[in-house]
């Protein structure tokens, strides 16, 4: 447990620092009230709005741990949202709609997995194919329109609450815990890391890298399906052009802020999810602070750059070196003294 806390400490500190920063600009940020059977407040909005990126980041962490990357998740959100909305609008009911959306996500993941694990295309190229072409598939399903529906049960997944907490927040929290337990209570997490560190060696050691890789991409597709369901249910409509647009980049950023290496190997889902929360806190904070919209991306970029610089191992090394130098310079006498003593 203490090792776990030590691993996520930098992300927790960053998140706290960002919350303090936003509170300086918008003092009511940390206020939470209970109205009409639900918690209300900016922090609750962050937990809810951060859901799509947090969900994507869970799957993305696993893919990146295998030294891969999944650029298609934003598009998969659009496809699964379109499938879900289509099923609801055609009167299939909530459970079939959810199942169909999840199957669509798994199918997208299977496609990516086959391209990567069996055909051997580099992950960035393999998933780029679905990223660019998939929106066309989503548009075919919605016929180019925003496919709207008015089913309260399906809308619950976007704007409903469970014990006063927005359902999307409950969903990513539960999924993060479940996937972490699955990875850490079994050998699965270690096998995934083994593939990321050296696929050939892990295969020689008896890991079925091919099946595991496909499974990891399917997991990422399923996470994207959940994110797609949340996004679609939130606006009660499937917007094939805009759903999940550029969110794959935010998901990768969340994983990186979470301190996971893009070169694969060790991973922490909790840290990635915290990364997603950090990004969402910045986004919501910018909106609340009331700056003109021209500054949104500049502020976000500046803060992200700062966070990554502070986390950089090279910079930490330089920092430690400079600090030691400064300390040495402050107390030069004893050192010279000892040297003189040795000389004669």
């Amino acid at each position: 447990m203490s090792r776990f806390l030590a691993r996520i400490a930098p992300q927790l500190v960053t998140l706290a620092a960002i919350v303090v920063l936003v509170t300086l600009f918008f003092p009511d940020f940390i206020q939470i009230s209970f109205e009409r059977g639900r918690f209300v407040g900016p922090i609750i909005d962050v937990l809810k709005r951060g859901a799509p990126v947090a969900l994507l980041a869970i799957g993305m962490t696993l893919v990146i741990a295998t030294r891969g990357i999944d650029l298609s998740v934003g598009t998969v959100m659009a496809i699964t949202g379109a499938v879900g909305a289509w099923a609801i609008a055609s009167g299939y009911g909530v459970v079939p709609a959810l199942l169909l959306a999840m199957v669509a996500g798994l199918a997208c993941g299977l496609w990516n997995g086959i391209l990567v694990a069996i055909i051997g295309i580099q992950p960035i190229v393999a998933t780029l194919i679905l990223m660019t072409s998939g929106r066309g598939v989503a548009q075919l399903i919605t016929e180019g329109r925003i496919l709207t529906f008015n089913d309260p049960a399906f809308a619950f997944f976007g704007s409903g609450t469970l014990l006063g907490i927005p359902f999307p927040a409950v969903l990513w929290l539960l999924l993060a815990v479940a996937v972490t337990l699955l990875m850490r209570r079994t050998a699965l997490g270690m096998l995934v890391e083994a593939i990321g560190i050296n696929r050939a060696a892990s295969a020689l050691a008896g890991v079925n890298a091919r099946v595991l890789l496909i499974a990891v991409y399917m997991a990422s597709g399923l996470c994207a399906a959940f994110a797609g369901i949340v996004a679609t249910a939130d606006i009660r409509g499937a917007d094939a052009n805009n759903a999940g647009l550029w969110l794959e980049l935010d998901a990768i950023l969340a994983v990186v802020i979470g301190g996971n290496s893009l070169l694969g190997g060790r991973f922490s889902i909790a840290a990635s999810v915290l990364g997603a929360l950090i990004i969402q806190t910045i986004d919501t904070g910018i909106l609340l602070a009331g700056f003109p919209s021209e500054y949104n991306l500049v502020i976000k970029a500046g803060l992200v750059l700062l966070i990554l610089l502070l986390q950089s191992p090279n910079l930490a090394h330089t920092w430690r070196f400079l600090r030691d130098e400064a300390m040495r310079r402050r107390e030069p006498e004893p050192e010279l003294h000892t040297r003189k003593e040795i000389e004669p």
Binding site: D28, R49, I146, A231, D234, N242, L288
Partner: peptide, 16 residues
């Protein structure tokens, strides 16, 4: 220009 964007920003307006 999107529904999601409109909803998210409106939520922050309402909070603020």
């Amino acid at each position: 220009f999107t529904r999601t964007g409109g909803k998210e920003v409106m939520e922050s307006f309402l909070q603020a």
